[in-house]
């Protein structure tokens, strides 16, 4: 609507557009170093955080990002919304739209929900994770973190291991990494490798060691037991042995290989504690970068409506 700028998915962005957002995020990173960690850029603007699925990290990160840009924020989470009372998503959003927010940040359990809002609501929509589709700000922060450590994305080998089928983090990462020229290999048990995943720009393998071999980055995904409605692997023990990351497996990667995880970690399932807390782990950098990426995204989206 009216030329609003949205961020619905990384799949819709070109390589230069992604690079631009990463550059912006890099600049915003500096704000955290100052005495006053706040700029007046979005003063008088309203950002609604509509989180209809449980999330602490992403919501906190978006909220702080908006506040550091001096926006007014309004946070609505699953429990407190009328969605539970049977109101549709669109009705909830229309009610919020009556306050004329500039940006609605949406976290929702159904894929495509941000597209529904973008088509019907007059506000910039930022996807904070929709079902198993995408989590574009997570994808951007993963890219930013890798770029900061490796100085490049192009030409890196990145292994993504775990439940690819149900992971929006994986989809955004695959799309973003491959668009910037990385060689992406996804790996997981066959029940967690969805058909046609290669079309997103990666290769797939069932063998963990093959995925990890000579990798520059290994990204482990969280096993989301609460989301699984069917039997996709026999036991945690078997999963940890075949698809978890331990120090021995990590040695097959390049010596300076980075270890990433979107959190929260199931210690001992997808990541051995020694690896999670080891020198190659950049998990905490991911959290820090999440803030600058979200500031960059809010800044970028807020600029769209005026043209």
């Amino acid at each position: 609507m009216r030329g609003r700028r949205h961020l619905l998915e990384l799949a819709a962005l070109s390589a230069p557009e992604i690079e631009h957002l990463l550059d912006l995020a890099d600049s915003f990173g500096g704000i955290t170093q100052r005495a006053i960690k706040k700029v007046p850029t979005l003063r008088g603007r309203t950002v609604v955080n509509l989180f209809l699925e449980a999330s602490t990290r992403t919501r906190t990160s978006f909220e702080l990002a908006a506040k550091r840009l001096s926006a007014d924020t309004l946070s609505i989470s699953g429990g407190s919304s009328s969605v539970v009372k049977g109101e549709t998503l669109l009705d909830t959003a229309r009610n919020l739209a009556a306050y004329q927010p500039d940006i609605i940040v949406l976290r929702h359990r159904h894929a495509g929900a941000p597209h529904l809002l973008a088509a019907n609501i007059d506000a910039s929509i930022v996807n904070a994770g929709d079902g198993a589709h995408e989590h574009p700000t997570q994808g951007l922060l993963d890219l930013l973190t890798i770029r900061q450590h490796k100085r490049r994305i192009d030409g890196l080998k990145v292994a993504i291991i775990g439940d690819i089928a149900h992971s929006r983090v994986a989809r955004s990462a695959i799309v973003g990494l491959s668009r910037l020229g990385a060689q992406v290999v996804v790996c997981g048990p066959p029940t967690m490798l969805p058909p046609g995943i290669e079309a997103l720009g990666c290769t797939a393998t069932l063998c963990r060691d093959e995925a990890v071999a000579d990798a520059d980055v290994v990204m482990m995904l969280r096993i989301q037991k609460e989301r699984l409605s069917e039997e996709l692997f026999p036991s945690d023990r078997e999963y940890a042995r075949r698809y978890g990351l331990d120090s021995a497996t990590l040695r097959k990667a390049k010596p300076d290989c980075l270890v990433m995880h979107p959190g929260p970690i199931n210690r001992g399932v997808e990541l051995e504690p020694a690896v999670a807390d080891g020198p190659q782990s950049i998990i905490l950098d991911q959290v820090t970068n999440g803030l600058s990426v979200r500031m960059a995204v809010l800044y970028h989206c807020a600029g769209g409506g005026e043209a």
Partner: peptide, 10 residues
């Protein structure tokens, strides 16, 4: 900052 057509690079 938001009045031009293009967002300035920060």
């Amino acid at each position: 900052v938001f009045e031009g057509l293009d967002l300035p690079v920060v």
